[in-house]
Design a binder for these strands. Structure first.
Lengths: 207, 207
DNA sequence: TTCAACATACCGACTGGTTAGTCTGCCGGT
DNA sequence: ACCGGCAGACTAACCAGTCGGTATGTTGAA
């Protein structure tokens, strides 16, 4: 009871208004605004107002405006890497593993459409070091995915007519592109889009 | 001789330095800088300095910074629309027409990589009216392309498993994505990339 | 041929507004 | 007494667009 009171009191302090702690609220507000108006067109003032705090709070938790961007990237990147690893490590035929991974990245991209839209649109706004770091993580992801394609090509279940790198870029092009055309509430549910896109990939890879 | 002198004098006036007229120099400088640093990160001052003129010149030829962006878009958009129309109107089987169009857009995109990169990255920075206009032109393009896919699906040469809209977005995703990974001087020539990507599309559409 | 009237192409200082980030200090809990 | 968690005024820099001015070219009439 005592610790409970403490927790509630602390919560009240760090969550004035709703039930979310301040850093999370800032991140959420920034994500929405960045996706809506773009990174450079969103002022720090607008972010803190949307989060119901002031600049003091923002610069208490984040080092810079860039930091917000980096955090947003980091979350999705880590999530997608984890999920890709899970699919790639599964005990199943290559075509099933690739299919699962290809469809899953579409679903998680749509489920975090704001984050991923910002990602591709403003990646180059990061400071050089952070940009480098993000690119490195990105490449790791790409390579893991490519390994799946290559494995299938080696074992003959996929056509080897197209270099694996290009195949991966082809698929991620469509993922990247989702933010441009996909609108929640459209005629297709995320999973349906994912299935279709995975189908296209697998059909393109038929020997 | 007299008229020649006059022409040269005029040229010298409108092309101080190299052989390009001022508006074209401005457009070229803006394109390079926008692609390099992004629209919002490029100041008008930097553009005019890169073009070797001053703000007076820029605002003499263009109404605003937005106008530059709009012009850059317009050029590529018109070029690609023309070429798509040519391929679509050709007298050949659908699969050949689609293949030609799909490969061609990849080549022209790579050949104008700066313009197209800016296009997809900064489209949403345009003023509402200009944005609407660009979107409308873009949709016309998309629909023409989709018609080709639908024709093939109706006549049975393409699989109808995937909605034509999605197929088009799948392909244009990869086109859109080119600016992210393609680097001139890489191991693949533009035409090779185009052939591979068109292959992937056509293979995905095999019944 | 000449000259005035006008037009085109550009220059560059200036303005009004915006912005990221800083800094001082309060406040409530431990 | 102290410290994390914030408030909010402040600063230094920057930037798109304007505007008055200059130089060069063109045209039409005397």
């Amino acid at each position: 009871m005592r610790t409970e009171e403490k927790r509630v009191a602390t919560m009240a302090r760090t969550t004035n208004g709703d039930g979310q702690p301040v850093p999370r609220r800032l991140l959420a507000a920034a994500t929405r605004l960045f996706a809506e108006r773009g990174f450079d067109r969103t002022s720090v003032q607008e972010i803190v107002e949307a989060a119901g705090v002031t600049k003091g709070a923002l610069y208490h938790y984040f080092g810079s405006k860039d930091d917000l961007l980096h955090e947003i990237y980091g979350r999705v990147l880590r999530l997608q890497q984890e999920r890709l690893d899970a699919f790639a490590d599964a005990d199943a035929p290559v075509e099933q593993r690739l299919r699962g991974a290809a469809a899953d990245v579409v679903v998680t991209t749509i489920e975090n459409l704001d984050d991923t839209t910002i990602f591709f649109r403003s990646m180059h706004h990061l400071s050089p070091e952070k940009y480098k770091q993000v690119r490195a993580e990105r490449r790791r992801y790409h390579e893991r995915f490519r390994a799946l394609v290559e494995e299938g090509q080696r074992t003959g279940v996929f056509s080897a007519d197209t270099p694996a790198d290009l195949v991966v870029d082809y698929h991620f092009g469509s993922v990247h592109h989702l933010g441009t055309w996909y609108r929640p509430g459209g005629s297709l549910a995320p999973q349906q889009v994912a299935d279709h896109l995975a189908d296209l990939l697998l059909r393109a890879l038929r020997p």
